[in-house]
Write a protein that binds this DNA or RNA. Structure first.
Lengths: 240, 240
DNA sequence: CATGGCCGGATTGTGCGCAATCGACGGCGC
DNA sequence: GCGCCGTCGATTGCGCACAATCCGGCCATG
């Protein structure tokens, strides 16, 4: 689930936005840590102006919190908030899936199938070596492509940004899901079922399957979190 | 549904944000019209820097669109998009209502009741003179207070901003709803029923009622729109 | 020892100027 | 008359400096 702005965006603000966002998602900026404008400006070799813009955008997307005159920090998340976000996400993506089933055009199906295949290949690789960073990154990218394809097919101008508001913040924990045994296969299965329901233009089934898929992901993640309470503490911003 | 930042924010950026937002919602800036940074800076008596911040924030909330190096304009909406936004809103606020029914604390009910009373008073005034701008503004404010109260009671940190993403843009048309005969009473009735379901801690009923309430609003609005096709054209940015 | 006011460094908020970019207009050749 | 190209004005993108604000520590006082 990456943003619309491609990483090689020519303007500085978008470049900083992509960089900081990736830094947050991949764990280089830990939750609770401060994002000082001057520091980021030096890191990305530009002035504070585009940095400000990037940070404010991240704020409006819920990845960082800024307090007036006190600056920005990476938003810490409690287990409770993660669960809530996944519940909203389930509803939003479920709705998107039902729209996709109703509204898709033939060309969309090609894109969807390609995303499906990519995810299955990534799954195979992931089953062999799930601690290879490149493999994990490919898994996440393939997963994002599948979900993005459905958002596009829904023909709903705004739903993409709405889904991102719910999805992006918990993305920090994404990696945890891949370590749960069976989760990769489960995801692949659901992706296929969802694609089938959408292809057959069955909105209700597509919605139900998507809701269940997302809730599965929620539970896997929460299970992984409580298995690593110290990690949970870390991500909640309670530095030790 | 007004933003969290109170209008008397000491901050220039927030002041401009509030001002432009109000200008869009109240029709002073028509959809499709350009928002030139320098112009806004003069109007709000500050430099372009805070104006930029305000405009970018409005962009991320979907009220304006900006094209690179070409500036911002008030986002035009098609009837189709309005319908889609209301559908998402129904689901999101329905979810929020069910959460509110499950999670509210006793003190919340006082706030909810006050909002309810305020809306009923505003309704009475509205039935007498529905073309008085002050009365309409009070109606909108009371309505916003009711919906905001439920969002607060849902104890879901992020749902407020999600709902606003779906609600804010079509707010431009809000006024149209008040002219549909019977709509004010219908709204008041639903508000009361929703409040009752929430108070009685019945999440499913609260959700159903809220979904229906929002969809009623959608239909009223669309009916009003097609009754004024020229107005619709105007708001869609097709200037004549 | 607890408390409150004061000061200095760090960081954000804002103003302002210049360079880059885009669209419109008009001149040129055909 | 029509399409192409260069120039120009309008506007945004960005860098930079100064002002406003906040936090921590220090000191005086009770």
């Amino acid at each position: 689930m990456t943003s619309d702005s491609s990483p090689e965006s020519s303007n500085d603000a978008a470049r900083v936005y992509d960089g900081v966002r990736r830094g947050i998602v991949e764990g280089d900026f830990l939750p609770g840590s401060r994002l000082v404008e001057q520091r980021l400006a030096e890191k990305f070799e530009c002035s504070r102006t585009p940095v400000r813009e990037a940070v404010r955008r991240l704020e409006s997307e819920g990845l960082v919190v800024v307090e007036r005159n006190r600056g920005a920090r990476v938003r810490p998340l409690t287990e409770h908030e993660i669960a809530d976000l996944y519940d909203v996400r389930a509803r939003l993506e479920g709705y998107a899936a039902s729209l996709a089933a109703s509204r898709h055009e033939h060309a969309d199906l090609v894109v969807l199938r390609r995303a499906l295949d990519r995810f299955e290949r990534a799954t195979d690789a992931g089953l062999r070596s799930r601690d290879d960073r490149a493999v994990v990154r490919e898994l996440d990218a393939a997963n994002a492509e599948f979900h993005e394809a459905l958002l596009t097919m829904s023909r709903h101008t705004r739903i993409r940004s709405l889904v991102h508001s719910a999805v992006d913040a918990p993305l920090v924990f994404q990696a945890l899901q891949h370590f749960e045994p069976g989760e990769l296969e489960r995801s692949a299965t659901f992706h296929r079922l969802i694609a089938d329901a959408v292809t057959a233009r069955e909105p209700e089934r597509a919605e139900r399957l998507m809701v269940e898929h997302v809730l599965q992901g929620r539970d896997t993640l929460l299970a992984g979190l409580s298995a690593f309470d110290d990690v949970a503490d870390l991500f909640a911003g309670r530095r030790g």
